[in-house]
Amino acid sequence: MSVQKREVLPVKNSNDVVLARQKVRQLAVELRFSLVDQTKLVTAASELARNALDHGKGGSMTVEVIVNGARSGLKMVFEDQGPGIANIEDALKDGFTTGNGMGLGLGGSKRLVNDFSIETEVGKGTRITAVRWK
């Protein structure tokens, strides 16, 4: 698997979330993802970036254009040094929220992409990786 392109963007305020979405849209268009897939990627990026901001006290997004044999895809990594997620299973449940959101963002983004993984440690931070293949 090779990385064709990598960009790192800060996620420190709500304007950064808008910029993160725009970057993902731009790369998804470049990769010629279908309109539906573009929308899925952008929406997942929006959810995960906002989680990193709201729950993780801000962090960063790394986007990569990756190629695996004949397949190409977009990989997004959201990292923060926030409080971490105590119970991943709960956090992924629809309707579970520790804030005042709908509690759908995390589980929803998992359904919007092909590969999804959460690495987290309480008190240290969270890294969420999401990939959608073409």
Partner: peptide, 13 residues
């Protein structure tokens, strides 16, 4: 739009 409708369903809204 259709793509928004699909995304909303996946999000579970």
């Amino acid at each position: 739009r259709p793509q928004i409708a699909q995304t909303i369903v996946h999000l579970g809204i």
